[in-house]
Design a protein around this nucleic acid. Structure first.
Length: 684
RNA sequence: GCGCCCGUAGCUCAGCUGGAUAGAGCGACUGACUACGAAUCAGUAGGCCGGAGGUUCGAAUCCUUCCGGGCGCACCA
């Protein structure tokens, strides 16, 4: 069997050094050390790897760290792939790699991960299908989609799910909006959806005028955005009596939708399906695809809860409360709660209300039992949306007889914003309580902070910003108030901006090609923008930052790729050929030594770090690490590019080496950008 | 009141399970296009890492506490 990641010298060398140190410590000093710390030094002058192990051993051995380090170095001997070890500072042991050997390994590496055998399920996007997607949803989808790509790159089999809450209160609200505020009939709604779906804007406008809807936005999800804002306002306006009636109407509508099989439910289905289709189209513009769309309506109608309820009662996770404020409910103990023996847990989480209906967390427990294959029930499946390479399926009460199998995963990741960490913790707690500890351990709430608007951005967009909000660092987006930046608007704006730049530079390319390049750059800019921040940092959105194409941005990295491609184009050769030629060079050491080559060595080293960063990214669920890695790689290449002129190099061996350096940078940049869902344009 | 997150350069953010002189981008100021395209590069200025204690050979990182900000704590979803 071939090694999983032959090109990753860092990962390989780190493991080798750890193992060697462990052996030496055992054999020569009779020391068993659990974890040997091996780190990457802050500067290349300290070598490529280092360990502060001597500091840790100082107390135990009652000796100065520096002496211990010297003793260890004295017996380390030679290790394949390393040029030597030395003591530095107060007791660091620095390791220097055999640079030529490392370069050859990196150059030859394919970097393909072997299948890990792990089957994971990632749930992301999960937008309520009642309005257009906004920038907050983009962060979710881009984080989720990128993480899917990372898991797949590491060899996992991954199913991508987008959960659709098509029977919730948000859908009910827009149904109320269409039926009772806009006062449309089922037939009229059907006509409107049909006109929008056919793509003929003029038809939608004609109907809009006839039905007295104004303004008539360009797409159906945009219309819903407006209707949702109007109905929210409608609920809050009017007399007290009217408000009560409207609230009653809201919940009556919700219950009809949940129950199904009536006209209101039919309207809800019509609207939510049309909006869902728009969400898929929006996300596809960013290269985001799904495998399966489980819907709440099927979780209800296929009685997932019934099955889960039985299991929960059996395992004792749920108990019936006879006393206190939750009297008459089925409840569960919250994670971390400590309740005295015999006392009533007033703080318990209600799962089944005293009227017998189940709460959101209850339904979520059922759904997650299904995800792990522990429920004993399954959805029906129907094809819903065709991508060029595969079909996206949707849940159905009665599905096709032939269908792929979803669920039954070994590990799951839920990309859900941090405000939902309590309910997520409840679900995990329930799984653990049922004895599914392994599943509970492999349940990751992939949480992230919201995207908010800077006050300046909100004012620029024409929203009323209260005086007290103007001094705040950011203002939360609100679909209810219609307050936010719609995803498609942002994408359009980005494409227009990149198009202007492309037009200025690519005068000889035709219209279609320019548009394609502009889109690639715009999507690259957007995806990178959403990925450069770590998950628990609130993004205060501003067009100035998002529309920036300089510095730490997607286009900066793409530009490095284009530069490398230009070198090979002008040089009449290819990256593959350059790497093949490198193998024929007998002497590399000279090109890698000395201060004037330090930047080249740094670039090779960075190139040899991909799998290490991937591993860290997955372990911490932090795609930002890989985004940063891509940027640093591009930065180091640009550095190299300015310092060494490749095509005019006269020494043929040196030129081959420089070309190979560019080739490896290209290979790494394209690979890592691909993991981030960012395309590498041919020109820009 | 309880829980979670955050506070690092003028601004926006990195800083991995504690480790060597605290980094990047933007902005400001200097410079570099008859070069493989300057969406680039080089340089300068800019930091009691919110405050105070503690643990440690060593703390931006761990613990305690205080201050300042955000978000959760429903028989809503």
């Amino acid at each position: 069997m071939t090694p999983a990641r032959p090109c990753d010298v860092y990962l390989e060398m780190k493991k080798r050094l750890e193992a060697h140190l462990r052996d030496v410590l055992k054999a020569r000093f009779d020391l068993e050390v659990e974890a040997i710390p091996v780190e990457i030094p802050p500067d290349l002058q300290f070598g490529e790897l280092a360990t502060p192990i001597a500091f840790e051993l100082a107390r135990k051995l009652r000796k100065a760290p520096k002496m211990i380090a010297q003793e260890i170095v004295a017996v380390l001997g030679g290790l394949e792939g390393f040029a030597g070890f030395e003591v530095a500072g107060a007791g660091y042991i620095n390791a220097r790699l055999d640079r030529s050997a490392a370069v050859r390994t990196i150059a030859s590496g394919e970097g393909q991960a072997a299948a890990s055998g792990l089957h994971s399920l990632v749930e992301h996007t999960s937008i309520n299908p009642n309005k257009a997607a906004h920038i907050g949803h983009l962060r979710n989808a881009i984080l989720g989609d990128t993480f899917v790509r990372l898991l797949r790159a590491s060899g996992q089999k991954v199913d991508v799910q987008n959960y659709i809450d098509n029977t919730g209160v948000q859908v009910a609200d827009v149904v109320v909006g269409f039926l009772h505020v806009e006062k449309l009939t089922l037939t009229q709604i059907q006509n409107l959806v049909g006109a929008y779906n056919s793509g003929r804007r003029s038809d939608a406008e004609k109907l809009g005028a006839e039905y007295r809807i104004s303004p008539v936005p360009r797409t159906f999800d945009y219309l819903c955005w407006d209707v949702y804002a109007r109905v929210s306002q409608w609920y809050a306006s009017g007399t007290e009596e009217e408000q009560k009636q409207r609230k009653d109407l809201r919940y009556a509508t919700l219950h009809e939708i949940e129950h199904g099989g009536n006209e209101t439910a039919h309207v809800a289905e019509l609207i939510s399906t049309a909006v869902l289709r728009r969400h898929l189209e929006t996300m596809l513009r960013l290269g985001i695809e799904y495998d399966f769309l489980p819907r709440e309506s099927e979780i209800l109608h296929l009685r997932f809860w019934e099955a889960a309820f039985g299991l929960l009662k059996e395992s004792g996770v749920l108990y019936f409360e006879n006393e206190g404020k939750n009297k008459g409910c089925w409840v569960m103990t919250r994670p971390g709660a400590e309740v005295a023996e015999g006392a009533v847990d007033e703080d318990a989480k209600v799962i089944v209300r005293s009227n017998g209906t189940v709460t959101y967390v209850g339904k979520d427990i059922a759904y997650h039992l299904w995800k792990f294959g522990l429920l004993g029930r399954d959805f029906g499946y129907k094809p819903f949306f065709a991508y060029p390479s595969h079909e996206c399926w949707i849940s159905a009460e009665q599905g096709e007889t032939e269908h792929p199998h979803f669920g039954g995963a070994q590990a799951i990741y839920n990309v859900i914003d941090s405000r939902q960490s309590d309910p997520q913790a409840n679900v995990i707690q329930a799984l653990r309580g049922m004895g599914h500890t392994e599943q509970a351990d492999r349940y990751t709430h992939f949480s992230y902070e919201m995207v908010a608007l800077t006050p300046r951005c909100a004012i620029d967009l024409g929203y009323d910003v209260a005086e007290e909000d103007r001094s705040r660092p950011y203002i939360e987006v609100s679909g209810r108030k219609g307050f936010g930046v719609k995803a498609d608007d942002l994408i359009d704006k980005l494409i227009a901006a990149t198009r202007a730049e492309v037009d200025a530079r690519q005068t000889s390319r035709d219209e279609a090609e320019r548009q394609r390049i502009a889109a690639q750059i715009a999507i690259g800019a957007l995806r990178y923008f959403m990925l450069k921040y770590t998950r628990n940092s609130v993004i205060a959105f501003d067009f100035k930052d998002a529309l920036s194409f300089e510095g730490e941005t997607g286009p900066y990295i793409q530009y490095a790729v284009v530069r490398i491609r230009n070198i090979f184009r002008k040089g009449g050769t290819t990256a593959e050929a350059a790497l093949a030629e490198l193998a024929g060079l007998t002497e590399l050491a000279e090109s890698l030594a000395g201060a004037e080559n330090e930047d080249i060595w740094a670039l090779w080293l960075r190139a040899g770090r991909r799998s290490l960063v991937l591993e860290q990214s997955i372990a911490t669920s932090e795609p930002a690490y890989l985004a940063k890695h891509a940027f640093q790689l591009a930065q180091e290449f640009n550095n190299f590019y300015h310092k060494h002129h490749i095509l005019t190099e006269e020494d043929p061996a040196r030129k081959t080496f420089l070309l190979a350096t560019a080739a490896v940078a290209l290979r790494e940049l394209v690979t890592v950008l691909g993991w981030l869902g960012i395309e590498s344009p041919e020109a820009m």
